[in-house]
Design a protein around this nucleic acid. Structure first.
Length: 437
DNA sequence: TCTGGGGTCCTAGGACCC
DNA sequence: TCTGGGGTCCTAGGACCC
């Protein structure tokens, strides 16, 4: 292991090769690139007075924390009150959502300069397979160095990279590399690297699984890989158990692939504690259905399964779903189905007087070109609910889409202003979390 | 005062079909 | 003597990830 200090760089720059490469050794070709504390780093980039300070992006909850804040135990998803308790000097800053989008795209464009095989996982994270890029750009470890330098110089942000032979190991390596580092796991030294690491670094091990494994004395990845399949199956179930064994033994079957479309499209809104009156349901579900159906139409997709989520005080939530024959992409139809499902969920939970969240998700997606979507609906279609017909609904939706395209989303509204004002999270932030659909 | 919003995948039971 | 086996689809819930 070695550490390089780059003169003039404010941030610590580290590089840890897990073992030095022999001249004939194969070099691992999968990279995982992950921007550090992304939203917080952007805020510190935009406002130099925030650099070196513990800051959090968000309002009611922490969306991202700077490393200075993380050192005090602040983490994303944490309620603001608890974050302030742990870190008294914590400063909350508003989100520059358009900048997050722009800078994230800029970084991805840099990655794309080295290979077409870039698989973007989220706004700030991607896998790459640079095995075919050697002749042009050098060994993967060298490519990783170049990427880190370019992102630092051209964008101004710290980025950590892990290099390994599989996606899973590259991902773990980038986590170990943080902040602002590079870790290369050389071929043949994988066990040495993995064995001492905590099981929580394995993809799919969260708090619940970690606790179950710990109850059997399994805390490291090495111990996990030594555990027999039957014991593991008893602890966490057969499906998860066999997956964990694969990953712990560095046998990740997944490969890097670019593109790929999502399997569902959804939206939800936290509401505080409110009584789920018919008016409230119509208002909130109207807004959510508008968002979801609009995104479906934009992607030329439609879905057969509609799922609603209702959360009650105490974080208990229930779902109700319905699979229909004709794929749904119209706002009005989605809204009607959702209202029926929510009504059913509330009836089934008659003891509840208040709800804290409503959500809609559409899955079982099919590709559907806009031309096909506007075909008339058969008269005997059992799922056509009253008039206008499905075709007329989509025609209406598309004209609304077109107006919004020209004059902005706010130019035609389904939701009442009251809802928009109450919305805790700006739509710009919601859009950041959307995956390519 | 229990905490945002967007997703993925798995499990288990039941209906239904051959 | 209540009764095989396999497959698909749907529904509800849960864990997990960014």
């Amino acid at each position: 292991m070695r550490t390089l200090d780059r003169a003039g760089a404010a941030a610590r720059v580290t590089e840890r090769a897990f073992v030095s490469l022999g001249p004939m050794a194969a070099s691992p070709a999968i990279l995982h690139a992950d921007l550090d504390a992304f939203y917080a780093s952007v805020e510190q980039l935009l406002d130099p007075s925030l650099r070196g300070k513990p800051i959090a992006v968000g309002g009611g909850v922490v969306l991202a924390a700077s490393y200075e804040a993380k050192r005090h135990g602040v983490s994303s998803g944490m309620p603001a009150g608890r974050a302030r308790e742990r870190c008294p000097g914590l400063e909350f800053v508003g989100g520059h959502f358009a900048e997050y989008r722009r800078l994230g795209d800029q970084v991805m464009a840099i990655l794309g300069d080295f290979t077409d095989l870039v698989q973007r996982i989220s706004i700030d994270e991607a896998f790459m397979d640079v095995g075919g890029s050697r002749r042009l750009f050098g060994e993967p470890a060298q490519i990783a160095r170049t990427i880190r330098a370019r992102v630092r110089e051209e964008v101004g942000l710290p980025i950590s990279i892990g290099a390994a032979g599989t996606r899973h190991l590259a991902k773990i390596a980038s986590q170990v590399a943080k902040p602002d580092g590079l870790v290369v796991v050389e071929v043949g030294r994988e066990r040495e690297f993995l064995d001492p690491l905590p099981v929580s670094l394995v993809w799919g091990v969260g708090p619940a699984t970690e606790a179950r494994l710990a109850s059997a004395g399994i805390t490291t990845i090495g111990q996990l890989s030594d555990t027999s399949p039957s014991v593991l199956a008893k602890l966490v179930g057969g499906g998860l158990g066999s997956r964990l064994r694969l990953l712990a033994n560095d046998e990740d079957p997944r490969v890097v692939r670019s593109g790929g479309r999502g399997r569902s499209v959804g939206a939800q809104s936290a509401l505080g504690r409110v009584a789920p009156t018919a008016e409230l349901r119509a208002e909130v579900l109207g807004h959510l259905a508008d968002r979801v159906a609009g995104r479906l139409r934009k992607a030329d997709r439609a879905g057969r399964t509609v799922t609603v989520r209702v959360r009650f005080p105490g974080m208990r939530s229930v779902t109700r779903s319905l699979t229909v024959e004709e794929p749904v992409a119209s706002t009005l139809t989605l809204r009607e189905v959702s209202e029926q499902l929510v009504a059913q969920a509330l009836t089934d939970n008659g003891g509840e007087w208040e709800v804290t969240l409503l959500g809609i998700s559409v899955s079982n997606l099919i590709e559907q070109a806009s031309v096909q979507l506007e075909l008339p609906v058969a008269d005997d279609d059992p799922h056509r609910t009253g008039s206008p017909t499905g075709a007329a609904r989509l025609a209406l939706d598309r004209s609304v889409d077109a107006v919004r395209e020209r004059f902005g989303t706010g130019s035609v509204a389904y939701a009442t202003p009251a809802f928009s004002e109450r919305g805790a999270v700006p739509d710009e932030f919601r859009e950041l979390a959307e995956r390519d659909s």
